[in-house]
Amino acid sequence: MARYLPIIIVALLMIYCVVEVAQAPPYAVRKMPRWLWATVVICVPLFGALSWLFFGRPNRETLNPTKHEPPRAPDDDVDFLRGL
Rank of each mutant, 00 (worst) to 15 (best):
M1R: 07
M1W: 05
A2V: 06
A2Y: 13
R3T: 08
R3Q: 10
R3C: 03
Y4Q: 14
Y4W: 13
Y4M: 13
L5C: 02
L5G: 03
L5I: 06
I7W: 04
I8Y: 10
I8P: 02
I8V: 12
V10H: 03
A11S: 14
L12W: 02
L13R: 11
M14Y: 02
I15G: 11
I15V: 14
I15D: 11
Y16C: 07
Y16R: 13
C17H: 00
V18F: 05
V18Q: 06
V19M: 09
V19P: 00
V19K: 06
V19C: 08
V21W: 03
A22I: 13
A22R: 14
A22Q: 14
Q23R: 14
Q23T: 15
A24E: 00
P25V: 06
P25Y: 02
P25E: 11
P26R: 13
P26F: 06
P26H: 06
A28W: 09
A28C: 09
V29F: 05
R30H: 01
K31N: 09
M32A: 09
M32Y: 06
R34M: 05
R34A: 08
W35D: 11
W35Y: 11
W35R: 12
W35C: 05
W35P: 00
L36K: 14
L36P: 01
L36S: 10
W37S: 07
A38Q: 10
A38H: 00
A38K: 04
T39C: 10
T39L: 15
V40D: 02
V40H: 04
V40W: 07
V41S: 07
V41E: 06
I42G: 00
I42H: 01
C43F: 12
V44Q: 03
V44F: 15
V44A: 07
P45K: 06
L46G: 04
L46K: 03
L46T: 01
F47K: 10
A49M: 02
A49G: 12
A49Y: 00
L50M: 13
L50Y: 08
S51I: 01
L53C: 09
F54D: 09
F55V: 09
G56K: 02
G56V: 00
G56I: 01
P58W: 04
N59Y: 04
N59V: 06
N59W: 05
R60K: 11
R60H: 08
T62I: 02
T62Y: 00
T62P: 01
T62A: 01
L63P: 00
L63W: 02
N64H: 14
N64T: 14
P65H: 01
T66E: 15
T66P: 00
T66R: 12
K67F: 15
H68K: 12
H68T: 15
E69Q: 13
E69C: 10
P70M: 10
P71F: 05
P71H: 04
A73G: 03
P74H: 05
P74L: 06
P74R: 12
P74C: 02
D75G: 05
D75W: 15
D75Y: 15
D76Q: 15
D76W: 12
D77Q: 03
V78F: 12
V78K: 11
F80R: 12
L81H: 00
L81K: 05
R82E: 14
R82V: 14
G83F: 07
G83T: 13
L84V: 12
